[in-house]
Design a protein around this nucleic acid. Structure first.
Lengths: 241, 241
DNA sequence: GCGTGCCTGCGACATTTTGCGACAAAACCG
DNA sequence: CGGTTTTGTCGCAAAATGTCGCAGGCACGC
């Protein structure tokens, strides 16, 4: 999904389709469009779709009918667009099992954030929590006490980590050697909603490096994979993998 | 659960679903809805649900049947909604293992309070087994005499604790190593309802730290988990876990 | 009943952690 | 080499936490 997910936008208003489509494409998401149920089904038949954005207020086959259709015939996640006041629609939509909804008028950025959040959840890394507990992890002279959230540098000095820094470090250690995208790191550290322009992972990596890996030219611990994310490059003793 | 718990509301009356859903969402709880058993099961299949609110008076698969289904197929906590006079249903419901019930007409605020209470309980902890009694707990040089509620510092000097401080300390010792949310700590120390802006736990932690763990930078006993709560990080001898 | 002292919760303010915009620096692309 | 994309990092503001002082409540002794 980090690649380029495909989203099918179903809405009878051309201007909305265009707006959404353009915005999503500008942010690395492939879009397919449909103005109603017939086109939607053809698109689904002809293309590999990762997620459907569905306006619930449409003539003909209305949105709820299509939502039910999607539920019954596919496994696709669905995000509904509902008119501001149509609480009822929203509620029915949630009953039908939509994964999220957005009320119109909506902020495209908000839509993108929801899309990414839903897709991230679908492609999350297998967690591997249990084996870590009760261990000390060692790498390049450093020691991380997993129970105490306590980090010790090669000279034995304790270095305090904030919660987010600790989680990020642990995510790296649990997946040492693997290239982790920002989305994956976001998932591993919180599962929080990622904004389109969320640079918080970069910030935390920066803060971690300042404490642990100050030579930016030749990182010994966290390597930047240009266009891909970050990678833990030091050997880790005591890790499960 | 501190995150944003998801509650599935199962009721055949749209107005009730509507009311409950809106109220809960306004207070930071995600809601999913179902008008009956079929939708309920689909929602459970498709989403991560933390708790189910179930109307017991429904046509078709009636509420008791669904409650039994939930008991047998899930570990989810259940709160029942019952009509005022249906004492029988209520009793049967509790016998079936519902975690709480509310009689209609109910106050949404009351429902929210019950939901929070049940979730707190559910997300916590092997309930305190009696074995603590009659023991002395030791950690980092300190000793807590559980029977006498008496604390002794590493030099053998007795340190007096107020009731709340003692309970808080015991809660930590009984769940050493675990991250405890403020809600959970509230439960463990009093079972009292946690207000949104209740900072009393923070205060008690602060007071405990002043007596026992004065170096805020490098706590040896109680660590703050930002956005999560507190965690006892010292080894405890004599504890059950 | 009345004062005294301790416990407790709350408001208020200080401090820390986080996330985000902005812009500089680096990497990539021809 | 210039132009574009991606990343590094700074500063700021919002959110969460730490902590102080105060006031109400309660127990106790007079």
């Amino acid at each position: 999904m980090s690649e380029s997910p495909t989203v099918l936008v179903v809405d009878d208003h051309r201007d909305i389709r265009d707006l959404v489509s353009r915005y999503l494409q500008e942010h690395g998401i492939r879009t397919l469009l449909a103005e109603g149920g017939v086109t939607m089904k053809r698109q689904l038949r002809d293309h590999a779709v990762d997620l459907v954005v569905l306006d619930i207020m449409m003539p003909g086959d209305d949105g709820l009918t299509l939502c039910r259709y999607l539920r019954e015939h596919t496994e696709l996640p669905v995000i509904l667009l509902t008119a501001m006041s149509e609480e009822t629609d929203r509620i029915i939509g949630l009953e039908m099992g939509a994964d999220d909804y957005l009320t119109k008028p909506f902020n495209p950025r908000e839509l993108l954030a929801r899309i990414k959040a839903v897709l991230r959840r679908a492609s999350a890394l297998p967690p591997q929590r249990a084996p870590m507990a009760g261990r000390n992890l060692r790498f390049d002279g450093w020691t991380l006490d997993v129970d105490r959230h306590q980090l010790t540098d090669p000279e034995g000095v304790e270095v305090s980590l904030s919660t987010a820094e600790y989680r990020l470090l642990l995510a790296f250690l649990e997946h040492a050697g693997r290239v982790l995208s920002r989305d994956q790191l976001m998932d591993l550290t919180r599962g929080r909603e990622a904004d389109a322009f969320d640079r918080s992972i970069d910030n935390h990596v920066s803060r971690l490096r300042r404490k642990m890996d100050p030579d930016a030219r030749h990182p010994r611990l966290i390597k930047t994979i240009w266009g891909g994310g970050y990678q833990w490059i030091a050997d880790v003793e005591g890790a499960a993998e």
